[in-house]
Amino acid sequence: MPAAPEAAPLPLPTTTIRVGLVEDDAKTRAILERAIADQADMQLVLQAASREQALALLPRAPLDVLLVDLGLPDGSGLDVITAARRQWPDCSVLVSTIFGDEMHVLPSIEAGAMGYLLKDASAPGLVDEIRSVHAGGSPISPMVARKILARTALRQAPREPGAHPPSERTTPPQRPTVTLSPREHEVLLRVSKGFTAEETAAALGISPSTVLTFVRRIYAKLEVNTRAEAILEAQRHGILPQ
């Protein structure tokens, strides 16, 4: 009886996506590193935990996709986006951050980001989005997309006769009072004491991703970028004790 023919080997990917990762949280970075390393069609060619480190490593190897956080310990990820687009024009930049407010979203897009995701996606989900942006897509978290659309609609809305555009106002509008929900206040209190997302989640009985969602909302309400700024601004508003 003739031997059964051997099964043909599965075809290997014809292209490899060269990925860069800029993330200051060690645990998050390790999870993403493993997820990317497990993909047959991806190669992690850059890993950085700070703005300075990312800027130093960018010229060393070409990138197809750069996954970058905005809130880095020594500066803004916007500088990394700008440098990456200048160094490797064909590189698609995908932002992954806790910041969902206009003051972060719009500058990121203007700097050259092709996608903008909030840090509530799983590692496998981010891997899929890396493929998406590399293929020409523009993955954007629904909440972020809604804000962009709302801003566009506001700009296109007709003004009443005699009304002046915002740039022509002689006095800036008063800054509204910041109000946090009880749960947001609990999260901010623990963040101000140096608790990690995991420690805060355990104390409050919620998931770490939910903690990050609360942090994102707190930062947006306080209009800040870092924990230190959030503490100072919360103290200024009387939300936290001096």
Score class of each variant (00 low, 15 high):
V19G: 02
I148H: 08
I81L: 02
T171Q: 15
L212G: 01
R60P: 03
Q43L: 08
A153N: 04
L44N: 10
P13I: 10
L154G: 11
L72H: 12
T15N: 03
G137Y: 00
Q242S: 03
P62M: 01
C91F: 01
L57Q: 08
W88H: 13
I81Q: 12
I231A: 07
Q235T: 04
P9M: 15
T171M: 14
P107H: 00
R216P: 00
A113E: 06
Q235G: 11
E23N: 01
R51T: 10
P176I: 11
G115Q: 09
T15V: 12
V45K: 02
Q53E: 15
A26H: 08
P241D: 15
K221T: 05
E102L: 07
H185V: 10
A26T: 12
A121N: 14
V105Q: 04
K119D: 09
Q156S: 10
A202W: 07
L118R: 04
M103F: 13
G205E: 10
A37G: 08
V22T: 05
E52H: 03
E6H: 08
K193H: 13
V93D: 06
S209A: 15
L240E: 13
P13G: 10
H104S: 14
A135S: 15
P182Y: 00
G205K: 02
A153R: 14
D38T: 06
A202Q: 14
A234I: 06
V93G: 03
H164T: 13
V133R: 00
L94V: 00
R175S: 09
C91G: 07
I109D: 03
A220C: 14
V178A: 12
K147E: 13
V191P: 01
P166M: 10
A230I: 04
A230R: 11
T14C: 05
A203T: 12
H134F: 09
S122L: 05
P124E: 09
L70N: 02
A8C: 02
R155K: 09
A49Y: 02
S181L: 01
G112E: 11
L212H: 13
E168T: 08
P165I: 00
